[in-house]
Design a protein around this nucleic acid. Structure first.
Length: 312
DNA sequence: ACGGCCTCCTGACGGC
DNA sequence: TGCCGTCAGGAGGCCG
């Protein structure tokens, strides 16, 4: 389930329980990617103050209520949904499902209780204290894909390894000359020659672009997923960045329903199948030119593309 | 320093 | 029907 739009949707879904107070914490299976800390019950008598998203991580901040013992300060959880995780709310006394590894019970001002179920069959996700893992998990992350920090200049110069990321496209040539004039700072870094798809899926480059959206963005931009990154033109970079932003934005607006088998309650086909042009469609025909879609592995990840629309 | 491969785990699906 | 192999939306870690 979770690519960035699903995580964003999950974050939004928690708004109704902001301010509610934790009354119980139950851990059923601590063995996720890293162990769920054994002192999560410290959250009891804390109120959920805010939920933020950084990359595909949910950051849940709790603050002590009057009932809480003492001088304790706020506590923040880092939560990641891995490949199969979800975080859902249920009425009190809802049965635990298989693969519900954590249930946090909260209550509102009226004493009405809600259960928050962390569910993750594959257990690639994580629930951790921010203070213990923030450095390791968050410090190295690249810009948010929907932020102004992620633009064509940034990506182009990151790939070309030209140091000045503020260079505008108009001044590209003169700027490059300027760099050549410089006495090549120690180790002159070479441009990135890896496949463009692996570059845009890298968390240090830009966060939140998973296999589905990388595949779709490259198709829409007409770029072969295996194209060496340094061979992408500036104009192609502009297009790629624009498509990454647009497709993520659209998916968020549609509620991030990217489940392969997602169907709305009425049984109609969901967003996933209607919207994806190539992902999961190897062997079908390109929506643009009807050529049969091909599938290659890039860094072990399946990559569907149209050989005609995305030439190498 | 980089790049590519491996890994954690369960479930769904296709072929035989 | 059932067994087995393969693959799946992530991403840190390790090795060459």
């Amino acid at each position: 389930m979770p690519e960035l739009p699903e995580v964003e949707t999950t974050k939004t879904s928690l708004n109704p329980i902001l301010g509610q107070q934790v009354s119980k914490v139950q851990v059923f299976q601590p063995k996720l990617r890293w162990p769920i800390p054994d002192d999560l019950s410290k959250l009891v008598d804390y109120a959920l103050q805010k939920v933020e998203r950084r990359a595909k991580y949910l950051l849940m901040t709790f603050i002590p209520t009057k009932a809480a013992t003492s001088n304790s300060t706020q506590r923040t959880l880092i939560m990641h949904l891995g490949m199969s995780g979800s975080l859902q709310q249920y009425p009190i006394d809802t049965d635990k499902r298989k693969h519900d590894h954590l249930i946090i019970t909260l209550s509102d001002d009226m004493g009405i209780q809600t259960q928050l179920h962390y569910h993750d069959p594959r257990r690639f996700g994580a629930v951790l204290w921010h203070k213990d893992y923030a450095t390791k998990l968050l410090d190295h992350l690249g810009p948010e894909p929907l932020s102004a920090d992620f633009d064509a200049d940034y990506l182009y110069h990151l790939i070309q390894r030209t140091t000045d990321s503020k260079i505008s496209s108009k001044n590209k040539d003169s700027a490059a000359n300027k760099i050549n004039e410089q006495p090549a700072k120690k180790t002159a870094k070479r441009p990135l020659t890896r496949a463009i798809k692996s570059i845009i899926m890298e968390q240090q480059v830009v966060v939140g672009v998973g296999n589905i959206y990388a595949t779709e963005s490259l198709y829409l931009a007409g770029i072969h997923p295996a194209m060496p990154a340094n061979q992408i033109t500036y104009e192609q970079t502009v297009s790629l960045v624009a498509h990454i932003k647009a497709i993520l934005q659209r998916a968020i607006e549609l509620g991030g329903s990217t489940l392969r088998d997602f169907t709305v309650a009425s049984g109609q086909t969901g967003y996933f199948q209607q919207t994806l042009n190539v992902y999961g469609r190897q062997g079908e025909h390109c929506p643009n030119c009807a050529t049969e879609l091909e599938n290659i592995k890039i860094n072990g990840r399946t990559s569907v593309y149209c050989a005609l629309c995305q030439p190498l």
